[in-house]
């Protein structure tokens, strides 16, 4: 009991210390906003998934996403699927550019954020927070929703 309350106390403290960080990052206000962010549901036992979204840039200068992170997964990486004839390949990319006064869509079959080492199965409907770092050092916190694909029947134990 003591132990568990100590633990939850420690967690609260951690949350309190960590929470303001993204807000600090956003102080360097950015012209990039994100909408329609979603993450593919992970089946029980699977620790890899991907996040998709639309990034919009209201500014006159192009911006790039250079890094992504989330509490629910160990490592997030920027990746791209490419089609070459009948083949599909996936490769990491250094940055995802959001053109000035334009947008870029992260979608299945194209650019996406890979999530490795997902700590627990993500079920459809869950809200997950992602953090994107841009090339100017600003940080965008992205609320994403976990979504099942057609034919998926949810994580089973």
């Amino acid at each position: 009991m003591m132990r568990s309350s100590f633990l939850s106390g420690a967690l609260l403290l951690t949350a309190a210390v960590c929470a303001p960080l993204p807000a600090f990052g956003q102080a360097a206000s950015t012209t990039v906003t994100v909408r329609d962010a979603w993450i593919r549901e992970t089946p029980a036992g699977r620790t890899v998934t991907a996040a998709f979204m639309v990034l919009e840039n209201a500014g006159a200068a192009a911006r790039s996403v250079v890094k992504a992170s989330a509490e629910v997964a160990e490592t997030l990486e920027l990746h791209e699927m490419k089609r070459d004839g009948a083949s599909m390949s996936m490769s990491p990319v250094k940055a995802i550019e959001v053109p000035a006064k334009g947008n870029v869509e992260l979608r299945p079959g194209g650019l996406h954020v890979m999530m490795f080492g997902v700590r627990k199965p993500l079920a459809a409907g869950e809200a997950v927070s992602l953090v994107l770092t841009l090339d100017d050092g600003s940080v965008v916190t992205v609320p994403a929703r976990v979504r099942a694909m057609p034919g998926m029947q949810g994580p089973r134990p």
Binding site: M81, M88, M90, G109, H112, M149, G151
Partner: peptide
Amino acid sequence: YSMCPDVCPTTLSKLSVVAR
């Protein structure tokens, strides 16, 4: 392959709809 984020789940999803 299972680490494939796209093609494989997309194919499985599509074939589930085909089955239905």
